[in-house]
Simulated assay, not measured.
Amino acid sequence: MAAQNSGLPKFVDCGNTMVRWSKGILNSFDCPYTNGFTEGANNKIKVLKRNAYGYRNFRRFRNRILHMFSNSTQKGAA
């Protein structure tokens, strides 16, 4: 790789990373599955937690998460 031979530390690091992860990077183009839904769900929960300034009761927090996701699945079904 030209980046590895450039002598610039950041380019060399980037080139080495690309070589180390090349198998996984190339496999990502063949596999249609991603963890996008899981990442989105985690983000929604984190935003809820941040906006609520912490729930005192975990049961209420859990119920709010379940309620939030039950409404989002119904929107997609229509």
Rank of each mutant, 00 (worst) to 15 (best):
T38K: 10
M1S: 14
R64A: 15
A78R: 15
N42T: 02
R20L: 11
I45H: 14
R62M: 04
N63V: 08
K75R: 11
I65M: 10
N63H: 11
G15V: 01
R64H: 13
N27P: 00
A78C: 09
A52H: 15
Y33K: 14
Y55I: 09
Q4P: 02
P32Q: 03
Y55C: 09
N51K: 15
K46M: 03
V47I: 15
F58G: 03
Q4L: 07
Q74D: 10
T17L: 14
K10A: 12
A2K: 04
I45E: 10
R50Y: 08
P9F: 07
M18R: 07
D30Q: 07
V19T: 08
T73G: 04
N5R: 12
P32H: 05
P9N: 06
G76M: 06
T38L: 12
G7N: 02
F37Q: 09
F69W: 02
S70L: 09
N43C: 11
T34S: 15
N71E: 04
G24T: 00
L8I: 15
A77K: 14
C14K: 07
L26A: 02
K46W: 02
K49N: 13
L66V: 06
Y33E: 10
T38F: 01
P32R: 13
Y33N: 11
G7V: 03
N57A: 05
F61W: 06
I25W: 01
D13M: 08
W21V: 13
F11D: 11
K46F: 06
K75V: 14
F69E: 06
N16L: 10
G54Y: 14
P32Y: 03
K10P: 00
P32M: 02
W21A: 13
I25H: 04
N43F: 13
R56A: 09
A77S: 12
